[in-house]
C-alpha cells in the first residue's frame, strides 16, 4: 500500500515544483523586479548594487532554490500595488475565500449528490426529467450571471439581502469569520449559492452518468437474478461502485470551487483572494499573482492526495498484493 501513496506524494511534489517554477519565472523574468522596487531617479550604479544585493545575478538554480525556500515558509515578497508584504495580504484575504468555498462545497455536495442518485434510479420519472432540465440550465448559466440575477432580485428589487462584502466579521486571532454575526451570515447567502449552483449541477450529472454505467454491469444483473431487494442492489452494490470515479470528480470540483470563487468574489465584491488576484492581473502585480498561483496549486495538490487516499479505502483492487492478483 505505501508504495502507491508514496508515488502519488512524490508526483505531488513534482507538480508543486513545476508550479513554483512557473511562478518563479513570472516573478523573475516578467517585468523587472528592480524597476518595481525603486523610484525613477535611482542611478544605474545603485540599481546594479541592489541587483547584486538581492542576488539577482546569481545562477538560475540558486535563485530558484532561494525562491522555493522563501515560498515554503510563506514569504512571497512585496506587492507592487499595495506596497505591503504579500504574506500579510493573503492572510487577510484567506479566511473570506475559505469560508465562502466551504459553504458552497457543502451545498453543492449535499444537494447535488442525492439528486444525481435519484435521477439515475428513477430515470424516466417526471421529477428526474425536471431535475435534468434544470441541471442543463444550470450548466448553461455562467456563474457571474447567476450572481447578477440574484443581486437584481434579492438585492435591488426585494432588498432582502446585502449585495456586496462580508458584512460584520469577528476576529478569532488572525482568522476573521462571518459565521458568528447575523449580517455575516446574510452576506454569505447569495455568494455561496452563486458559487455552488454550477458545481451542484455538474456533480449531479456526473453521479447520474456513473450510476447508470454501473447499473448496466453484469454483476448488478446477477445481483437482481439472486433476488436481492432493489434497495440493496442500488445502494450497497451500485452506489459503492460509482464511488471511485465520483470521488475523483468531486475532488476536482471542490478544488475548482476555490478557483471559481474569483468570479463570485468579483461579482459580490467579496474581500477574498480571488478579488485580490483579479486586481493583481489588472495591475500586473506579479508577486501577488505568483503567490496566488502557488497557493491554489497547493490546495489542488492537497485535495488530490486526499482523493488518492480515499481511493485506497474504497477499492480493494488497489490494496491488493499484485502477486495474488491472478493466482489460482
Amino acid at each position: 500500500m505505501p508504495a502507491f501513496l508514496l508515488r502519488r506524494f512524490l508526483q505531488s511534489i513534482v507538480v508543486m515544483l513545476t508550479v513554483a517554477l512557473i511562478a518563479f519565472g513570472l516573478f523573475r523574468y516578467v517585468g523587472d523586479p528592480i524597476n518595481n522596487l525603486v523610484g525613477q531617479d535611482t542611478t544605474l550604479e545603485e540599481r546594479d548594487e541592489l541587483r547584486e544585493r538581492l542576488g539577482l545575478n546569481d545562477a538560475f538554480i540558486v535563485q530558484f532554490g532561494r525562491f522555493v525556500r522563501d515560498v515554503s515558509i510563506g514569504e512571497f515578497g512585496f506587492s507592487y500595488q499595495h506596497r505591503r508584504p504579500v504574506r500579510e495580504l493573503v492572510a487577510e484575504r484567506l479566511p473570506a475565500t475559505l469560508e465562502l468555498s466551504l459553504v458552497s462545497a457543502l451545498l453543492a455536495l449535499l444537494v447535488g449528490a442525492p439528486m444525481g442518485v435519484y435521477t439515475a434510479l428513477r430515470r424516466r420519472g417526471f421529477v428526474s426529467r425536471g431535475f435534468m432540465t434544470l441541471s442543463l440550465i444550470g450548466i448553461s448559466l455562467p456563474t457571474f450571471l447567476i450572481g447578477i440575477l440574484l443581486i437584481l432580485f434579492f438585492g435591488v428589487i426585494l432588498r432582502w439581502l446585502p449585495t456586496f462584502g462580508r458584512g460584520e466579521v469577528v476576529a478569532l486571532g488572525w482568522w476573521t469569520t462571518g459565521f458568528l454575526t447575523a449580517s455575516g451570515l446574510k452576506s454569505l447567502v447569495m455568494p455561496s449559492i452563486t458559487l455552488a449552483l454550477f458545481q451542484m449541477t455538474l456533480i449531479m450529472r456526473l453521479i447520474r452518468a456513473e450510476m447508470l454505467e454501473v447499473l448496466r454491469t453484469d454483476f448488478i444483473k446477477f445481483a437482481h437474478a439472486r433476488g436481492l431487494p432493489a434497495r440493496s442492489v442500488h445502494f450497497r452494490h451500485a452506489l459503492k461502485n460509482t464511488m471511485v470515479p465520483v470521488i475523483t470528480i468531486t475532488g476536482l470540483q471542490l478544488g475548482s470551487i476555490i478557483a471559481f470563487a474569483i468570479i463570485t468574489e468579483s461579482v459580490f465584491q467579496w474581500p477574498g483572494m480571488g478579488l485580490l488576484f483579479i486586481q493583481a492581473i489588472g495591475e500586473v502585480d506579479i508577486p501577488v499573482m505568483a503567490a496566488y498561483l502557488v497557493l491554489i496549486a497547493f490546495f489542488f495538490v492537497a485535495i488530490n492526495l486526499v482523493v488518492d487516499v480515499l481511493y485506497f479505502v474504497v477499492d480493494p483492487r488497489l490494496r491488493a498484493d499484485k502477486a495474488t492478483a491472478n493466482g489460482q
Binding site: A223, G227, S232, R236, N241
Partner: peptide, 30 residues
Amino acid sequence: LRGKRIGMIFQDPLTSLNPLQTIERQLVET
C-alpha cells in the same frame, strides 16, 4: 423467487461479481 427458487449463472465470471465486496459478504447477503 429469484435466487431462492430459481438460480441463475451467467457467461462471464469476470464481470458477474461485485469487485468491491469480499466473496463472503456477497454470499452471506444472499
